[in-house]
């Protein structure tokens, strides 16, 4: 048991090969997309597929000009960042209160919050659409920020609650004994201890908002469209377009996949509402 240095037993070789094989197979579509983004349109549809070619950045320029990438990307950044920050501002006090001064109703309240997540989006689409139309909010970033905040709020409260619960109460009590005000308690005790939890909650919700497609497609069209909406303009073939499609896709997913890699551990806690640790 103590021999940490693994020898290349047949079992280990088989496991390594199988694991790498499966991982590369599942990752393959993204590899293919990555390669295609740097091909010319003619090279992109070559059969059999080319794997050695002179890379070009042409597609990225075209995508940038044709579909106003910067505008869509800006909308994505604004809606996901603002909704995440806003969500944290609402969720953190609630999670703090439930974790440090729980009452009889706390568990019930937590479960009720979870239950709001199960209102299917289509069930809410029509009223929201009509309300936003009346308020003149259709196709605005404000509308998407509101939706994304509400969509992620239960997840945020739950994640922060599980993080805050792990902070030992004694530390807070000691601070109070020493006469710390609520603000000082928050600033010097809770924030430093809870910053990891806040960061990972934020990261996960950033990913969820960035990738949200249902509301973005239905509520944001021209002005407030996010990158998820931009991609739809690439759904119908216009001549040869694979290379441009790939370039646009790469530009739409690259930032968030990287953030996703960093928040993968939190994903488990967040999306299962703490039921799996």
């Amino acid at each position: 048991m103590s021999t940490k240095k693994s020898k290349w037993t047949p079992a280990l070789i088989a496991r390594t090969a199988a694991a790498w094989g499966i991982a590369l197979l599942l990752f393959f579509p993204l590899i293919f997309m990555g390669f295609t983004a740097f091909k010319t349109e003619l090279q992109a549809i070559a059969v059999p597929s080319l794997w050695a070619f002179e890379p070009t950045l042409e597609n990225f320029h075209v995508v940038n000009e044709r579909s106003d990438y910067v505008q869509f990307a800006w909308n994505s950044v604004v809606t996901s960042v603002v909704s995440t920050v806003l969500g944290l501002l609402i969720a953190a006090p609630a999670a703090y209160s439930m974790a440090f001064s729980p009452t009889k109703g706390t568990n019930g309240l937590l479960l009720w919050m979870l239950s709001t997540k199960f209102m299917p989006a289509v069930g809410a689409l029509l009223p929201i659409y009509v309300i936003f139309q009346q308020l003149g909010l259709l196709d605005t970033k404000t509308a998407l920020v509101i939706i994304f905040t509400m969509m992620n709020l239960p997840i945020m409260v739950w994640m922060l609650y599980t993080y805050f619960k792990d902070i030992p109460h004694e530390i807070l009590e000691a601070a109070r004994m020493d006469g710390a005000s609520v603000w000082q308690e928050f600033r010097h005790v809770l924030l430093p201890l809870g910053i990891g939890g806040l960061a990972s909650t934020g990261l996960l919700c950033l990913v969820l908002a960035w990738n949200e497609a249902f509301w973005a497609l239905n509520l944001g069209a021209a002005d407030a469209g996010t990158l998820a909406t931009m991609m739809v303009s690439y759904s119908s073939p216009e001549g040869l377009f694979w290379a441009k499609l790939s370039a646009a896709s790469l530009m739409a997913i690259a930032p968030i996949v990287v953030i996703g890699w960093f928040s993968q551990k939190q994903l488990v806690q967040g999306l299962t509402f703490g039921a799996v640790k």
């Binding site: 990738n211 990158l227 991609m231 994903l267």
Partner: peptide
Amino acid sequence: IVRLLLISPFFVMPTVNALLWKHMM
């Protein structure tokens, strides 16, 4: 690395996922 490769598709937005499969796959 295998873990990172395996988890990646989950972070791909649905519209990119759909177009990637529809056209290139």
